[in-house]
């Protein structure tokens, strides 16, 4: 339940980018959140809405893209997508799988409004 501290990190990133590009307003932020990241998308959105008050992201939108678990199997070379923590290869059943995706906690995209033409 550390979504608020994650949102503080999001704001460090968007403030830095907004300042760099001379943006007065942030329109939207896109996050990629892996199923295994430990962060809950709905709570991130609530924390974001609380945090944005009085910042240049006030009125902006947080889009959360949930990333399922993707496993790669070293035994058969198969790729498996899982919605929950079932760490087995769908093709051969191996449990020696490598987790390729699903741990992400990334700010992927920021949409800014700038004054320059």
């Amino acid at each position: 339940m550390h979504e608020l501290s994650l949102v503080a990190s999001i704001f460090e990133i968007i403030e830095a980018e907004a300042a760099k590009h001379g943006a007065a307003r942030v329109i939207s932020v896109t996050l990629k959140v892996g199923v295994l990241s430990g962060a809950v998308p709905d709570l991130l959105v609530s924390a974001f809405e609380a945090y944005r008050q009085g910042t240049r992201a006030e009125g902006s939108r947080l889009d959360v893209v949930a990333v399922p678990i993707r496993l790669r199997c070293p035994d058969c070379g198969g790729s498996t997508v899982r919605e929950d923590a079932d760490f087995s290869c769908a093709a051969c059943g191996s449990r020696r799988v490598e987790i390729v995706e699903g741990r992400e906690l990334l700010v992927e995209r920021i949409e800014l409004e700038t004054d320059d033409a």
């Binding site: 994650l6 990190s9 999001i10 990133i13 980018e17 590009h21 943006a23 329109i27 992400e104 906690l105 990334l106 700010v107 992927e108 995209r109 920021i110 949409e111 800014l112 409004e113 700038t114 004054d115 320059d116 033409a117």
Partner: peptide
Amino acid sequence: MTVKTLTVVRDLLATN
């Protein structure tokens, strides 16, 4: 007024 979309890809846990 222009709208800029930046692809940043920054890990929230990178600092940690």
